[in-house]
Amino acid sequence: MITNRKTALEIGVNVLFITIAIGMFIVSADYKFVRGTLLGARTFPLLVGSIMMVFALINIFKTLGIQSSEENVEVEQALKELTKGKFNNWLRTYRVAAAIGLMVLYYLMMLAVGFIFATVIFLPAMLYLNEYRKPMKVIVVTIVGVAFLYISFKVLLGVPLPTAQLF
């Protein structure tokens, strides 16, 4: 099961990049060459893209080829032991998705209310996701952390922090 999903992901990634390379070929089709030469905005992406596609295809065939080999069963077993059961494994995937979702929310909050406020909301949520849940500690960590960032970046070094841009 795990290996199957991993195989699917691996093939997916390789297919994705092949698609991107083909997309780049199409977009670059109307970039002109310097007259009389092979020099142009297309040359390098075309060259690198083609080479990449070769490697991607090798990757895909290799993945398909070893799908049911014994070696992989061992890996699956090892991974099962490490994650201790199906539930934990599901939880791991869920956490990754949650972390990515939280980052996207963080970005949107920065656009809406600026860095400082967004971080004040983001940090406790991320700490919660990280199993760090004692309320007092979370508050202290958040306040100290945000204060540290604000003072070191904005006050001492005068480096701008992301500001709200929607309003």
């Binding site: 780049m24 670059s28 970039y31 310097v34 142009g40 992406p45 893209g49 990449m52 490697f55 990757n59």
Partner: peptide
């Protein structure tokens, strides 16, 4: 092979932006 595949992705990423020879705004 995986390393070379990854290297090519890096090279492709680097091709975004104004092309150094003809100044075409690429991708």
């Amino acid at each position: 092979v995986k390393g070379l595949f990854a290297g090519c992705i890096g090279l492709l990423i680097s091709t975004f932006g104004i092309d150094p020879i003809t100044s075409v705004p690429r991708f």
